[in-house]
C-alpha cells in the first residue's frame, strides 16, 4: 500500500471535458513511489486522456495533480502551494531539483524537465530519421544544453561541454545495452523492427532521468516473447532506478504479472483501485470487461453509479 503511505503523485478530482463529452469525471488516485501502477479499462475509458493531463499535453478542465520528488506528497504543503499561484516549489532553482509540482499548472515540456515525468506514446513517436544513439542523446537535451552554455560555450568546444557529452554518451550506452540495441546504435530509429522501437522509446524516456515514467500501452503489438522481455525491462527500471512507473495496458499478462497497484477506469470513472488480486476479483471490473447477465444489469449499473 505504498500509494497510500508514500505517494509520488496524487490526482484529485481530475475532470476533463471536450465540449459536451466528459472523458474523465472526478477521478482521484495516487501513484506510489517505487511502484508499478497500471491504469486499465475498456477502450474509450479515458486512460490516455488521464495520461495526457498528467504529462501536460491536455489542460484538465478541473482537478489537482500534485507530484512530489524527495518525499511523499503532503496535502497541507500542496494546499499551501496551490493558494500561492506558483506552479512548483523546489529546494533550489536548479532544473531537476526536488520539490512539489502542481502538474495542472505546468506546460508539457516543464513537466518533463522540472517535475521529471517522462512518457511514451501509444503510436510510437521516435525521431525516425535520427540514429538510435541520437534519439537517446536528444533525450538528455536539458543537461547538455546547460553544459553547452546555451550553445555559446559549446560552439567553441568548451571542455565542460565535452565532459557533459561524454557523460550523456555513457548513459546512452548503458541504456543501449539494457535494451540490447548496441549493435544497431548507428542505424536510423525508423529502420528498427516494431518491438525494438517500443523498447527504444522506453529507453529514450529513461534517458531524461525521470521520477515517473508513463507508458501508454507498452506491450501493444508485441509478441509473447517480446512481452516477456518488456516485463523484465520494466522490473529492472523499478528495482534499479529511482523511477516509478505508471502504465496503460490491455495485455493482462503484463498487468497482473508486474504491477503493484491497479486502477480501473470505465467511462471516465474509477471503478476499482487496489492490488492486482483485489482488482481481479472485483465484480465491477469483471462486469466492465466481460459484461454481466441481462438480469443483473440494473443492479451492476447502480453499483457502478451509472
Amino acid at each position: 500500500m505504498r500509494w497510500v503511505r508514500d505517494p509520488l503523485l496524487v490526482v484529485e478530482g481530475l475532470t476533463m471535458r471536450f465540449g459536451g463529452l466528459t472523458a474523465v469525471r472526478d477521478l482521484s488516485f495516487s501513484v506510489g513511489r517505487g511502484d508499478i501502477t497500471a491504469l486499465i479499462g475498456p477502450n474509450g475509458a479515458g486512460k490516455t486522456t488521464v495520461f495526457n493531463c498528467i504529462t501536460g499535453f491536455y489542460k484538465p478542465t478541473s482537478g489537482l495533480m500534485a507530484l512530489s520528488t524527495g518525499g511523499p506528497v503532503r496535502l497541507d504543503e500542496v494546499a499551501a502551494l496551490a493558494s500561492t499561484g506558483h506552479r512548483y516549489k523546489c529546494v533550489d532553482d536548479q532544473i531537476g531539483a526536488d520539490g512539489v509540482f502542481l502538474l495542472e499548472r505546468m506546460p508539457d515540456f516543464e513537466i518533463a524537465r522540472r517535475a521529471r515525468v517522462a512518457r511514451t506514446f501509444q503510436n510510437i513517436r521516435l525521431f525516425s530519421g535520427m540514429t538510435v544513439l541520437e534519439n537517446l542523446i536528444v533525450a538528455q537535451h536539458t543537461p547538455l544544453m546547460r553544459a553547452s552554455g546555451w550553445t555559446i560555450k559549446g560552439l567553441f568546444g568548451a571542455p565542460q561541454y565535452r565532459e557533459a557529452e561524454a557523460a550523456a554518451m555513457k548513459r546512452a550506452r548503458y541504456w543501449l545495452e539494457h535494451i540490447e540495441l548496441t549493435h544497431r546504435a548507428d542505424d536510423a530509429a525508423g529502420s528498427l523492427p516494431y518491438g525494438d522501437q517500443r523498447r527504444l522509446e522506453i529507453a529514450r524516456a529513461m534517458c531524461t532521468d525521470p521520477v515517473l515514467l508513463c507508458l501508454d500501452e507498452p506491450a501493444a503489438g508485441l509478441n509473447p516473447r517480446e512481452s516477456l522481455e518488456l516485463n523484465t525491462l520494466l522490473r529492472t527500471i523499478r528495482d534499479h532506478h529511482a523511477t516509478s512507473i505508471l502504465l496503460i495496458e490491455h495485455d493482462m499478462s503484463v498487468v497482473m504479472e508486474i504491477s503493484d497497484h491497479v486502477v480501473v477506469l470505465e467511462y471516465g470513472l474509477r471503478i476499482s483501485d487496489g492490488t492486482p488480486e483485489s482488482v481481479r476479483n472485483d465484480p465491477k471490473v469483471i462486469a466492465a470487461y466481460l459484461g454481466v447477465d441481462d438480469d443483473e444489469v440494473a443492479q451492476v449499473e447502480a453499483e457502478v453509479g451509472l
Binding site: T55, F57, D108, F109, E110, A112, R113, A118, R119, F121, R125, L126, F127, S128, G129, M130, V138, A139, H141, T142, R204, A205, T208
Partner: peptide, 12 residues
Amino acid sequence: REDEIACRSLGI
C-alpha cells in the same frame, strides 16, 4: 523536424 510532440515530452 522529426517529431515535435516527442520533443516536448522530453523536456525540450
